[in-house]
């Protein structure tokens, strides 16, 4: 399994359930600090093929120094740069192609539901779902245009409000061309009596659509054990 060293680019800016955790605007870390972390990871990489980094903590596209961070990462020898985003910035003109050409190969988009009505209501932003879907389409188009192997994955923060939307969210990611979805289940959701039905339906929706669904935060036996396995490993870089 490919490992990615996590490097925080800031906090906030990603979709979250406003009924559980109010979303906050992105507060970026300094580019110099981020690049210093990248350098440390690149110089000490010993985790198999790589070095690989995952820029986490917030919507990477909301970081004003992102182009420089990515290009410096590639210059330092990083082979796989992974970003997490709401997806919307990828729909903006030139962003997807620019990120790709700078060296980004892995994009992870956060959705709370599989349709605009529920996703927009849960995150509290109008048109957020449509923008995310358009962004994912933009990423696929850019990948096709430049003929680079790239990866689109998804994350669904599963709380008791988003739980019922898991299967539809997985289906939305499948339609967008994602290869995998990670379900990060909160403690509250993990205690929901309907958990196994919704998570199981989400996992099965993934398999029949050829998209892997990994599950984190549930008791063993909630889903077939294979689904406890992610397609990548996020490594703590500190």
């Amino acid at each position: 399994m490919i490992g990615f060293a996590t490097i925080e680019v800031g906090r906030g800016g990603l979709p979250s359930c406003r009924l559980c955790v109010p979303s906050v605007p992105m507060a970026p870390r300094s580019s110099a600090d981020v690049v210093a972390d990248v350098r440390r990871v690149a110089e000490s990489w010993a985790a198999g093929p790589g070095p690989n980094i995952a820029l986490v903590g917030g919507d990477a596209f909301a970081h004003p120094g992102l182009p420089s961070i990515v290009s410096q990462s590639v210059a330092l020898g990083v082979e796989r740069v992974r970003l997490q985003t709401s997806g919307a910035p990828l729909a903006a003109h030139g962003n997807a192609l620019g990120a790709l050409r700078a060296g980004v190969r892995h994009v992870d988009v956060v959705l709370l539901a599989g349709d605009s009505g529920n996703h927009d209501a849960l995150c509290g932003t109008e048109q957020a779902f449509t923008a995310a879907v358009n962004g994912m389409a933009g990423w696929r188009e850019a990948s096709d245009e430049d003929r680079h192997p790239t990866v689109l994955t998804g994350t669904v923060p599963v709380c008791r409000h988003t739980l019922v939307h898991v299967p539809a969210a997985v289906a939305a990611f499948a339609r967008a061309g994602a290869i995998a979805v990670h379900l990060a289940v909160s403690a509250h959701a993990a205690a929901d009596p309907a958990l196994s039905e919704w998570i199981g339906a989400g996992a099965d929706t993934g398999v029949v659509n050829g998209i892997w669904v990994s599950v984190e935060g549930v008791r063993p036996g909630t889903v077939p054990s294979l689904h406890e396995r992610s397609v990548y490993a996020l490594l703590n870089s500190t």
């Binding site: 399994m1 490919i2 093929p49 690989n52 590639v74 990083v78 082979e79 796989r80 740069v81 060296g103 190969r105 892995h106 680079h148 192997p149 790239t150 990866v151 290869i179 995998a180 050829g210 998209i211 892997w212 294979l226 396995r229 397609v231 990548y232």
Partner: peptide, 13 residues
């Protein structure tokens, strides 16, 4: 799962 893991490996600079 396997094909997704291989795709993650293949996507690199």
């Amino acid at each position: 799962l396997g094909n997704a893991m291989v795709s993650v490996y293949a996507a690199r600079v």
